[in-house]
Structures are given as C-alpha cells and as structure tokens.
Design a protein around this nucleic acid. Sequence first.
RNA 1: GGGCCCGUGGCGAAACUGGCAGACGCAGCGGACUUAAAAUCUGCGGCCGCGAGGCGUGUGGGUUCGAUUCCCACCGGGCCCACCA
Length: 967
Amino acid sequence: MSAQPTQEASEIQHRYTAAYANAVEEKWQASLAHADGGYGHHQPNPGEPGFDASKPKFYCLDMFPYPSGAGLHVGHPEGYTATDIICRYKKLKGFNVLHPMGWDAFGLPAEQYAIQTGVHPEVTTKKAIDNFRRQLRRFGFMYDWSREFATIDPDYYRWTQWIWLQAYSSWFDPSAKAARPIAELEARLAREDAEIAVEGGTTKRWSAASRRERQAHLDTFRLAYLGEQTVNWCPKLGTVLANEEVIDGRSERGGFPVLRMPLKQWMFRITAYADRLLADLALVDWPEMTRTLQTEWIGRSEGAEIRFAVEGSDEALTVFTTRPDTLFGATYMVVAPEHPLVAAAIARGNGALAEYASWAKNRSDIDRQASKEKTGCATGLFAINPATGARIPVWTADYVLMGYGTGAIMAVPAHDERDFEFAKAFDLPIVQVVEIEGTPFTGEAATAGEGRAVHSANPATLSIDGLATADAKKSVIAWLERQGIGALRVNYRLRDWLFSRQRYWGEPFPIVYDAEGNHHPVSAASLPLVLPPLADYSPVESDSPQPPLAKAREWTHTTAGAAGVDPAVLAPDTPVVRETNTMPGWAGSCWYYLRYCSPKDASRFVTPEAERYWMLSRRKSADTAGAAAPTAYDPATCHAGGVDLYVGGSEHAVLHLLYARFWHKMLFDLGHVSTPEPMGKLFHQGLITSYAFQRADKSLVPTDQVSEVAEGEFVETATGQKVVQIVAKMSKSLKNVVNPDDVIAEYGADTFRLYEMYMGPLEASKPWNTRDIVGVFRFLQRAWRLAVDERTGAVLAAATPDPKLEKLLHRTIHKVGEDIEKLSFNTAIAAMIELVNAATRPMGLADPSQGGLTRDQLERFARILWPFAPHFADELGARLGVCSMEQGGFHGGSWPSHDPAMLVDDEVEMPVQVQGKIKARLMVPAKAAAAEVEALVLAHADVVAAIAGRPVKKVVVVPGRMVNIVV
RNA sequence: GGGCCCGUGGCGAAACUGGCAGACGCAGCGGACUUAAAAUCUGCGGCCGCGAGGCGUGUGGGUUCGAUUCCCACCGGGCCCACCA
C-alpha cells in the first residue's frame, strides 16, 4: 500500500495505454490548427504559393457523407481510413495529393428528421455537420479542410443551379451524339425555316409559328425539360420519386407505398446518353459488378419497330419487339392502359374499357407485383398482321408498360410466357412459329429461345420457314423496311430522369412562369437563387402534389426583373411565379468532385486550370486523341481520366454513379470539363456488419437480451431459450450498433484505424467483433515497448543492426508498399506485426542477446507505419528526433527505400513430394538448375526410402517451389 | 423467375500465374514471472489416431505429376433486377 503504487505510477508513465494514446493523438491533432483559423494539411493548386509542378498528381476521393444526427457509423471510417492510408503513402512517394471532404446535406432524411423534431433542417444539418467534422478530425484523416463545403451552401448550389441551366439551354444533337447549346438548334430551325409540329397535330413553318409555338417546339429538345409523365407519387412523403428510388413499389426512404399518376415535372433527358453511358463503361477501371449493374440498368436491347395498320384508323399502331422473326405468330396485340389508343377507344363509348383502364392506372405497383395474374380488356379495335394479313384484336393490359418501347406489343403467345398466360386467360389463338431443338411445342406452355422458323410463309408477303432465328430476324427486318412499315431499332430500359421533388429541403429551380404558364430561365448572373426561409416546411400529405415552397407566397409571386430574368427574355415588370418544386438529393452529389478542384472560385463552377490538373490523367491523356474507342473493358488501356481513386459503398453503384456520369458527359460536351468520365478508378468498401442473435423461429433478439452460457453458446436471458449467433446489419433495434467515439475512448484512433483495416479485405463484408480489437492494440503496445523505455520514456535502440532483422525490414518495407498499392491493408498490417514480433522476440537471430532495432531501423519502421497509425508514428518519430510537430510529423518525409537484393535468399527449403505427398524437405541453393535439384533430391535418404526401389517415371521440378516424383 | 458473387480451423482471415493449406490476429489450453491476480514473456494448437499413419478448403464428379485455385452438376448463403416485349 505504501511504495507499490508510486512504483507502478512511475512505471506506466510512458506506457502506451488508451489514455496515453488519446493524449498523444489529441496533441498531434491540435498541432494541425493554423493561426488563421484553418485546419489540416493544405494542398495548393497550380499557380498557388507552395505548389510543386515537378510532382505527379493523385486525386483521391471519398463519397462524401450525408451528415445524419446519429453521427458517424463504423462503416464511414472504413473507407476513409483506406483512402487516408493511400494518400499518406502517395504523399511519402512524392505526389501532390488532393484528398478533400465535404457534406452531402440536402435531401429527404434531414427533412424527415426536421419534421419529426420540429427543428429547422438547416439547424439540424449544420449541427450534424459539426459533429461529423469533429469525429473525422479525431480519426486524424489527412483531409485538405480548406476545400471543405456543403451542398447546402449557396456558394455551392449556385453552381448546381447553373449546371441545371446549362442542361436547360442545351439539346442532344443526334448527328454529333453530343449536347449542343439550344441556341444552335434555334438558329438552324430559323435558317432552314423548318416545319415544326404545333398544338392540334398540325405543322407550321418556323417563320409562321408564334413565339409560344417555337418555344414549345424547342422544349421537346431540351436536356432539362418539363414533361408530362406517369410518375411515382408517394403520398406519405408528399413527393414524387425517381424510378431508382422506388423499390418493390415502396419508397427507398421510409418504405412507404408509391402510386403511379400522370404529372408535369422537370425531367433530364438521360436517355439521349444511353449508348454513351453504356459504351464508356469500357473506359473506366471499375469493379466488374458495378459495370454490370449499370449495363443492366441501361438495358440495351436490339430488335425491330413494326407498324401495324389499325382498322378504321389512319394511324398505325407501332410496337417494339426483340423477336421480329415471330411476326407470323402474332395473334393479337396489347397496349398499355395509358396508351392514346385506349383513350380514343373509350371516347367512342367503350364503358368496360374505361372502367378497366382507370382501375389499372390507379393500381399501385405493390398490388401489381403481389399478383401477377393477367388482367386485361379488349379495346374493340382490330389490327392487321402485315405478314399473315390476319385481322387480330387489340387488347389493353397492365402487363404492358407505357414507359418501355412504344407502350404496345405484338403478342406471340406460343413463344412468350406472358403472352401465353394472357392468351390462355382470355382464350386467344396460339400459333407456333419457332421450332426449338430439344423443347417441342406442346401447347401447354410457351417455348422461348432460338430455333428455326415454322408456319411462317405467305405467298403474298414473305417466307422465312426453315431459317434460324438470327437469319429470320434479319429477313423480316429487311422485308419490313422494303414495305416501309418497320425498321431495326435499339431500345433501352433506361427512362428519363425525374428531377422534381415536392419538398422544401433542396435546391430551388432557377425558373419562373409567366401568366400563360410559359417557363423562363433566371439568368446565370442572378444566381444563387437562395432557398427562402420557411417556418412551416412540412409536406402536405395529400392525393396530389403540393410543394411546400408554394407557401412562401411573397417569394413565389414576383416580377421578372426581381427574379433576375434576362430583360431580353421577359420585360422586368412582368409578373411571374417561381417554380416551387425543388431538386432531389442527388443534385449536389452529381458534380462535387469538380468543385473540390477549386472550391473558392466565385466566377466559375470550377477553375479550368485546376480542373485540367486534377482531373486529366497524365499517364493516359496522350493516347486519347487519335485512339479508337475501346470496345471491351481492359484496365491496362482504359483512359477515362477523372478522379484517380473513388472509394464508397456499392449501394451507389447505379443511382449516384450513373447520374454523376451523365452530368459529367453533358459538361464535357459543352466544353466545361476535359475528361469523358468523372471517376477513372472506383472501389467499393465492404459493409461492416455485426453479430445478432436468432431464435429457433428465425426471429431476432436484441443483443442486450442475450447471455453467453458457454463458449459459442447463447441463450435469451429472460427465457433461457437457446439462440444462435448470426451476422446481420447493425441496427438500433438489435442494439448492435457500435459508436466510433466509444471505441476511440477505449483504444485510441490509431488502434481503431488499424482494427478496421485488419478485419479482412477492404471489399469484403465483415462482422465487427469488439473482442478482436485488442490484437492490434497489443501490436502498437509491443511496437512502443520496442522503441521506448516505459519507465523513463527514453528511446531504446540497438547499437548495431541485426542482419536478419535488417533483411526482414527490407522485405516488410517492400511488402507494405506493394500491399498499399493493391489496397490489401490487412496483409500489410500482418507483415508489420511479424516484423515487430521478430524484433521483440529475438529467438533465432544471429545474436540473440542483441534483439531490438537500431534508431535508423526504428525510423524506417515508423515511416511505413505512418499511413496506418499516423499519431503513433509521428510521436515515435519525434522521440527519435527525426520529425517534429512544426514540420507536421512525417508529413513532408519520404517512403523508405528497400534493397531488392535483400528480397532474395541464397538457399531455399524445397519440399519433395512422391506421388503428390510430401516425403522430405531439403535446403537447395536458390539459383540451382532443375537438373542439379533433381540430382540432389534423388540422392536424399528420405526420398530414396519413399521411392522404395520403384522405377522413377517422371520428376517435376518447379524451381524455388517444390519437387514432385512420379513412380 | 432471371443474372451476378461467395462457401477454408471455435471466430476474423492468409495462400504470387495451378506448386509446402491455415501466415497474422482473436478466443482456448499449458508453462515462466507473481503471495495472488492483471499485465508481460513463452509453448501448443485443422480433424481422427497412443503411434506409425490416415483424412482434410460446402457435396459429388472431371482435367492435371500436382486443384482452395480450372471445368461440370448439386447443396447452402448473400446481392441485384424483376410482367422491360
């Protein structure tokens, strides 16, 4: 009780405990605060003081977080630690490194949270940002905080609105396959005095058309346009949603039912870019899975467009089919309930049809998907099959979707499952026209697939009998073209992007409407159009969309001049009403990677020199000019340019990454950016899951209601019922969420970083196991004891280097560097653990009494550990006197070199197999030739015994690896 | 229903191009130090077998001198799309 505590206290003074780690980390983090109020490591741009043009560049980007009130999830620091390691490594390797961070702060969740708590979203969002920033700094991530911004900053969304105006003022020129200013189209129409379609189904010359008619015509070309569409309306959220935000008929956010209804909304003509979005996937170094998902989402299919004559009508019914070869088997037609033909038939007094159409249109997607029973109604109209000449009925059914193809199909029940079911349900004729080898047509089911055409001949039209499907398709298409009733056609599953939301917390559209309802853009010079403060921003839960911004009457009702409309467009005193819809949460994340290049530029969305420096890949830019577009993905030749490494979750594989590519391509076409793709290389970190407990009936039990009764055996505490441990997502209800703040308090940020990187491969989904953290913590403690006397704090170093350890150090430097480049952090850490273990356990060394590392060796170890555990490494470096707080630790240093000669051994142990089983091991010179090795092996006593006198048939020698003897 | 990915000790995982399966860590067991515990150091550890030896990367087959790795079928788990003509 007397001397003991004093003794212990003095002993632990320099021990690497959690408290010590926290103190060291906070000390080094405090040193990053600048006198001017800034924080962190600043990477200057070209032309700025301190910029070194001789270095290569590396632009590394994390998917910026959505700052939620709950704070960082353990999943966030996983990707951020990975990029921090890469960036620190690249820094030591002599790169100019751009590694920014910011906040994706507009959007539904913040608004939903605000509505629940009654606190304005701006207040809650800014508070959440402050908390996220504090947490990220506590991890010691090397971000350039001088480039930080949030998508809700008017200085940022000013340019989001500006880009939208660019799209509004552009059209997609099919001959150039690129966006062009719409003024060019306007000039061309005027020059050619083109005939344009006007209201009422007629046409007029451009010179004869009214201003309104001209505008209406141009509107059909704009890349951002107002379109009447069947939209996904979510009454609960009080907004419409993009197709991408609807999952199984429910909203992605909240899981509320979604209905379909027609509505006039701002759209993006992303479909114009379908083929480029598809083709350019060959340019990027992305995970195969992500490229596949985007390919499927775009959904290109090749087929034919066929026009069927409709009895008693001048207008043909156009269908899209991928199987024009089955035209002879088309025994009826189906159009979507929203198809104009249905409305026309109803107008002629078909009551049953009216009833069915209104039922089908209002049917929710959930109902449609729950029951795939075929429903439908005859329209009373008949079409003529151009091949057979037969009169075939036209039906309507909700299994045909207005949004795909032409909203109409020719039904071939013999060879399409859906058509077959429908034909059976409504007793329609079924005619076989394809014979498929191995699957005879019995009339019991449709036979899909390729084969040979049968029953497909008509002397009056054409014959394709006997042709293989591919040839039959070509023949039919050629015939259709000759007849002028069809053509080859490529169709995409991708739909135009619905860009309006009936919500408050988003970017306002820079658009006003005049008294006649014509839309006019706000001039770029008057941006930003700031979101007006609104006391009551709650959505109106209703059957029809009512944007909350409409409540800001003083803001919405203004004049053209006050709104900033160009006087040449509209006289300044013209009364106008502002657009009250806002942009969706995706808007801000579509271009943030560009803003980071020059976040303070007040005159442009990105400074051109900065954009070219950070986005254009030097390595590949030279060969892009004349090179033919690659047709298949090849990481060796891909040359998309863009961000050098983009890391984030695979949940954004389609939505964010497709939208951002689309915006980027628009900006590229208009000459605002210099690369065809935004992200050259993409990587998805895996999900960090957690353990959960499951009862026998598969129901889940919260973690705090479970006790471990024996190793790996768990029971529900209240009932004693046995439960099994499973892996599940972290969730509040399961009580298995881990708060990073708690882990840092218990072990320090360096240990947290190491643990997440050591869990397994970065891309793999893996369960958090708190029990395992202590492993990497012990590694840091052992490394600390290796270098620092725990009682005195003095540096402990060997006087002379141990040759075995020196060799191991070279190998470790080499392996850690290689593994970082491969993003294989778990094996890099394992290598460093092995080094420290070897140095602290001097068994088997040349001189066991020596052990330990010299000061020089400790320094090199600290440098390779620095990317992983920067505070630890900096503190060690400072104690060794090789770096200081003033210099920012190892920040300005370099990666240690290794001697390639140290990586090879003179002698290697060679396992010898006889009949594939290991029978002996012997040391052979590493450079020994195969024949030499063979002679050595065959002379070995164990080998001779194993062969036991049998004749040797074959000896396989793999130099440096092993030997296999076949007898 | 269609497509894609993944199955290695009690657990997280390693394994270059087909070449010694289980590096490294956790948990476990034993030893040293300690009055004791913690911490630390240290030994063992895929399974069966006293042993020699045999069997082992979800299961069954195939290719090969040799298969966790390549091919086929099946079982189990996960992700995505889903009436897309």
